[in-house]
Design a protein around this nucleic acid. Structure first.
Lengths: 231, 231
DNA sequence: GCATATTTGTCCGTATGTATA
DNA sequence: CTATACATACGGACAAATATG
């Protein structure tokens, strides 16, 4: 009755066609990790996974390398690969990176680029619409896009890529939040407020609002962590 | 008479002992890339490198993966691996990341941590000493440590790690600067000035000085690039 | 433009070493 | 302490892509 992760993964086998095999395998595993099918702490045995996905162990190991670099997987020498389990110290660190980079991106915004604010606007609207229709996982996605659009204000491809990784890593922590609604709902209004301050050219206030926002979010996730750790 | 890179690498073969083989190989290649033995654009043939280092192709490929994710190596499908060659757009982007993160780290400095400023002080002194003794490659190293210490003010392990990678990537660009003295010398005094502003608690001025510093450095490297590109 | 040689991408089998029941 | 399971690393194989003459 328990839905075996290995048999579930076997159905992904048909999906891998384009680009490098290792990258396709990494893509599949990345999705399975972020959507919670492969939970933090799970073993990733080379033999079982390799045959489930129909790739050799060598190729699978290359895929592991990709995910290890993204911090989604950890490899213990001679013990194999595991889905990363974040500590609350990791959560604190991730929010520290977010706060520093996102607030700096807001303050560095020159108004020259018109695209980035448009993405922000879309993300805010999308989040509000999804909330109205009770699609809370879509609210979470829209929220991720909001933060990505904030980073994009700095107009640095490398920072965009890096912060996408930070977001993916944070999703490992969100799995402890059992109720996505109570977590995400309060932030919808704050997202809009930040957007409005930005539109008004009041960068300092926008950055301060964002900093407070991130401080509160961090506090909630850390609290969720400690509720789980001490049963 | 031409010192063949392959035979040079063979002498590194004795050095690999601890940790995972792929990581040790990656470490050796990383050094050879940052010190300029393996120049940007060089091929990294699996057969020759593998036998030079005494490892199998599979293991070597794992080492490549590590370096690819550090952006020091690029892989072209069915063409193999090459030492990364930075475009001037890459240089601009890298300095943008540096400016945003380092200036934000300065502004976020609370003065709570006493270690980080000590590292800064040491890096400044070390740079001045090395300059006095005409050890210009040590000046470059001290300069790297200075920036690393600036980042450490934010007290985020993840940011430390990421910016270390950014520094390594930037070293790919420094190879176009033929004269390390004229490049590094002017920055020694500016480093000290930034340190003094920080000690005085004047974070805003320190951040502004740092921003100007990075803008000038970027301009020099980009200029060096264009001198090479258009012969 | 073609035929050949080289190199990569991927896979397999296996021997050795390491961790854990 | 032994046994088992697994990861590490090697070498060989072959097709496919690329480079070379």
């Amino acid at each position: 009755m328990t839905p075996d992760p290995m048999t579930e993964l076997a159905s992904d086998r048909a999906a891998l066609q384009r680009s490098s095999t290792a990258e396709r395998v990494a893509h599949i595993l990345r999705e399975r990790i972020t959507d919670g099918t492969l939970q933090p702490g799970s073993r990733l045995p080379e033999d079982a996974l390799g045959s489930a996905l129909g790739v050799s162990r060598n190729t699978l190991r290359e895929a592991f390398r990709l995910l290890i670099h993204e911090h989604l997987v950890v490899a213990e020498l001679n013990r194999g690969a595991f889905v990363r389990r974040l500590s609350s110290a990791d959560v604190v660190d991730l929010y520290r990176v977010r706060q520093l980079v996102e607030c700096a991106a807001v303050r560095a915004f020159t108004g020259t680029d018109t695209e980035a604010p448009d993405d922000l606007r879309r993300a805010v609207q999308e989040g509000e619409l999804a909330a109205k229709e009770d699609r809370w996982s879509d609210v979470a996605t829209a929220n991720m896009r909001f933060h990505q659009a904030i980073v994009a204000l700095a107009r640095s491809p490398r920072l965009d890529e890096y912060m996408r990784q930070v977001s993916a890593e944070l999703r490992l922590a969100f799995h402890v939040m059992q109720n996505p609604r109570t977590f995400h709902e309060p932030f919808l209004g704050r997202n809009r407020e930040i957007l409005e301050r930005l539109d008004a050219g009041d960068l300092a206030t926008a950055a301060d609002l964002l900093a407070a926002y991130l401080r509160d979010a961090e506090r909630q996730v850390v609290a969720g962590y400690e509720a789980v750790q001490t049963p």
